[in-house]
Nucleic acid binder design. Sequence first.
DNA 1: GATGTTCTGTGCGCTGCCGCGCAGACGGGC
DNA 2: GCCCGTCTGCGCGGCAGCGCACAGAACATC
Lengths: 232, 232
Amino acid sequence: MKSASETNRLLAQLPRRDREDVLEHCQDVELMQGQVLAQPGEPVGHVYFPRTSSIARVVEAGGGSSLGVALIGNEGMFGASLLLGIASSPARAVVQSHGSALRMSAARFRMSLTEGSALRRAGHSYLFVLFDQLARTSGCTRFHLLEHRLARWLLMTSDRAGSSTFHMTHEFLAHTLGVRRVGITRAATDLQRRKLIHYARGEIVILDRKGLVKAACACYAADLASYQRVLG
Amino acid sequence: MKSASETNRLLAQLPRRDREDVLEHCQDVELMQGQVLAQPGEPVGHVYFPRTSSIARVVEAGGGSSLGVALIGNEGMFGASLLLGIASSPARAVVQSHGSALRMSAARFRMSLTEGSALRRAGHSYLFVLFDQLARTSGCTRFHLLEHRLARWLLMTSDRAGSSTFHMTHEFLAHTLGVRRVGITRAATDLQRRKLIHYARGEIVILDRKGLVKAACACYAADLASYQRVLG
DNA sequence: GATGTTCTGTGCGCTGCCGCGCAGACGGGC
DNA sequence: GCCCGTCTGCGCGGCAGCGCACAGAACATC
C-alpha cells in the first residue's frame, strides 16, 4: 500500500472493487519533465493517473507561442476525453513535473467504463471540473497580472506534486504561462524578494505557502472549491 | 417542417425516432439578446437547442472584466454539462444574438439520455467539440490581435445566426471579447474601412465573407474543422 | 422641434509585456 | 582546473490595449 501522498485521489475515491479492477490493469511508470504524452489530433494510446507527477494541457497559437490551459495531477487523470467517446486528444499533453503515474491502455480503459460504473461517474465529474478550470484559466490568462498567475501555477504544481519543492526552470514556466522567459524571471524575483519562494537553477521551494496563496489570484481558491464541490 | 437554416443541427443528426422523441418535449422559445440563461453555480433548469439564436459562455474575472469563452448556436446546445451528471453551470450563459431556440426541462433531458441513445452520443461528441473550442479560445485570447479575434467572433456569430446581418453593439462585443468598448470601435472601424463589414448603430452586415475569414485568425477555421471531424 | 438616450468616434498619457541583445553565475564532464 | 552548457538577471525601445474624458450622430418620445 502506497502512502496517502502517493495515491491518485480519483482512483482512491472508487469503491474497493472498482479500484482494484483498475489497478490490476495499470502499470507504474515514471514520467519525465517535458515528455510529450499526446499531440493534438493524434489518437490517445494510454490514459494516465498521476501520483506525484503532473501533466499540462498545452495549446499552440502560432509563432512559437504556447499556453498551458489545465494542469492534471493526482486529483484527476489524463485521457478523460475517452469518456466522451473520442480517442484523439484536443491539445498537447506535456509532463509538467516529473514523478510517478499509473498508466493504462486506452482500450482497456474503455472496457472499464461500463454503464453505471463508479469509474465512469468519477470520470464524468472530473471532466466537469476540468471544464471549469479551462474556462477560469481563460479569464485568468486574459486579465490577471503575471505575478498572480505565476503564484497560482506554482501552488497548483506544488499541490499535485505533493511537495513544496520541485524542479522547473523559468524557461519551462514561460512556455506554460504563455510569456517570455524574462517575464517569469521578473515575477519570480519579486516573489522571492518577498520571501514567498526560493529558487536556484530550477529548484523551486515554496517558503510561505499562505503568503503565496495571498499573492495568487482568486482563481487558485476557485479551482479548489470547484473540485471540492464536485468530487470532494 | 422548418427550413434547413432554422433547424438545430445537433438534433437534425439524430435518427428520426430519437429526434421526434426530443422535439415532443421541447417548446419553441424566443431568446432576447443579453438574456441570462444561467449563472455559475446555479442549477440549470432548462437546456436549449438554438436555431437562429446563439448563446455565449461568459466568465467573470473580477473588476468588471468578462470574457466569452465559447459560443453555442444551432450546431450545438446549451446545458451539455448535464451529460456529465452535473446540474450546475460552470459559467454564465448569455444570449449573444436574439432568435429562436428549442427549450427542454433539465429533468426531461436527463430522462432522454438513456444508455446508448443517439442523443447521448451526439451530446458527448459536442462536449468534446466545446472542450476543444474552449482550449483554442484561451490561446486566441492570449496571443491574437483584437482585430483578428473580432473577425473570428463575427464569423462565428454570423454562422450561428444563419445570416450575414445581425444586431450587436460595440459595447456588447467588448464584454464578450474582454476589451474596452473603444477597442472594438477601433478594430471594427478598420474592418469597415477595408469593406469587409458594415455597421451602424448595432446593425452589423458582413459584406465580404471570404475577406473576413482572411482577416480572422486561424482559430475560426480550426473550430470548423474540429466540428467537422467529430460531428460532420 | 426640443429633449434625453443610445451608439459611435477621437485624443492623450500610461502600463504590462514583448523582442532582442548581452552578461554573469553555477555546475557537470573531461 | 578548465570548458561549456544551462540557468538567471538586466537594459532599452516598442507596442497593444487601458482608463479617462469628451464630442458628435442617430433615434425615440412627446
